[in-house]
Write a protein that binds this DNA or RNA. Structure first.
Lengths: 206, 206
DNA sequence: GCACAAATCCCCCTAAGCGGGTGATTACTC
DNA sequence: GAGTAATCACCCGCTTAGGGGGATTTGTGC
């Protein structure tokens, strides 16, 4: 039996990337891909998908609304949310609307396939397990000693960006970035990028 | 049918890494692992391997000698060479002795599994195909405008090492490294690490 | 209102890394 | 003897990363 997957995602590169990945896996087949929910809706039934990869930030009908509509029109499909922003509200909403899981768009490829097969086997819609995992994975934001801005900057550092680059991407001055970094180092009691990243990863701050 | 794999490799980390990888794949099973050929020899027949992953730089009996012995004692096995140094002589010798393929130890994991299954299906010992691929992949060293030392240093840069680190690893002065880099840039007609790496990869110089 | 945290920015400094330039010596090959 | 490879020594400017010292604005809570 082949697991039929479709993707609804406006970014062509991400769409193609996921298609490539899914088709690489034995037992998984990307039967179709769409840039919007409107485009996908007429084919939902004929595509006969087991799993739908659904972008939350969609043009037109957004991902959250799309979940409700899919659940109504084609309740058999497991929905996995794709998102760039790890926004708690949206992900919890999505899960409560019937999504089975979520993936960040930069999730390592191995995890992506793993998640698809996991969703198929175990969890029905909004399994307690998934909800728990989500809470777990968001533990970081809750009890972190770092402020939002500081976390954001530390994530930039984790991606190997320079202070200058982080500054321009956040539309703030280099000096501000520097101050934040100094504060981060002070809070984590370290004095280098490497140590800060080590502690942050260990304590799941990022 | 399960493909039986064994590995002969003195580095424990690499051994465990490959074992993990191989066992992850459906249809592949790592039946045993050994730190030297001497250790492996008594079990060659009982292990009944389809594929042997063999380190070239082995303590005691080295990989090249091991190939001959394996071919004599247990000719059915396909031998895949593991090596850190992409040394033409050794790899050609290995292939002429009856190895079916080779892998660099930092080959991406997807390629490793791919190579094992490829070797099983297609090429007998020293297939013309493999030889051609090897020659292809070594095209770099032959018609490269860069000297050996320059290539070596460029590879260091490709691994993200600083000039100082490259210098200490090659037991030469930082200034020497700098001069080499300047010469590399001049030969490749570029003015930065990034450009140099781009050109070098494009022209398969590294 | 006052304290505090968060976020923004401004200086000072040192050290290291990178790139460009201009030399040099040794040694080996054609 | 010309050329190349490999080694090293200075000059310069620029960027990045830290450490240190300030400052302001905005909001939230007591």
């Amino acid at each position: 039996m082949v697991t039929r997957v479709i993707i609804i995602e406006d970014d062509q590169t991400i769409r193609e990337g996921f298609t490539y990945l899914v088709n690489l896996s034995d037992g998984l087949k990307m039967v179709n891909s769409y840039a919007s929910y409107e485009e996908a809706e007429p084919y939902l039934v004929s595509d006969f998908p087991d799993v739908i990869l659904l972008d939350i930030e969609l043009p037109g009908i957004n991902g959250l609304d799309a979940i409700s509509r899919i659940k109504k029109k084609y309740p058999a499909a497991h929905i996995i949310i794709l998102t760039v922003y790890e926004n708690e509200q949206n992900i919890f909403k999505a899960l409560s609307l019937g999504a089975s899981g979520y993936l960040t768009k930069n999730t390592p490829s191995s995890k992506i396939i793993e998640s698809i097969t996991e969703v198929l086997q175990g969890g029905g819609p909004l399994s307690a397990n998934v909800a728990k995992m989500v809470i777990q994975s968001f533990r970081k934001n809750s009890q972190s000693p770092l402020s939002k801005r500081e976390t954001q900057i530390l994530e930039g550092i984790a991606e190997g960006k320079s202070r200058t680059r982080i500054a321009s991407e956040l539309f703030i001055d280099k000096e501000t970035v520097k101050t934040h970094i100094k504060n981060i180092y002070s809070k984590l009691d370290v004095n280098s990028k490497e140590e800060a990243l080590r502690i942050a990863r260990q304590d799941k701050l990022i």
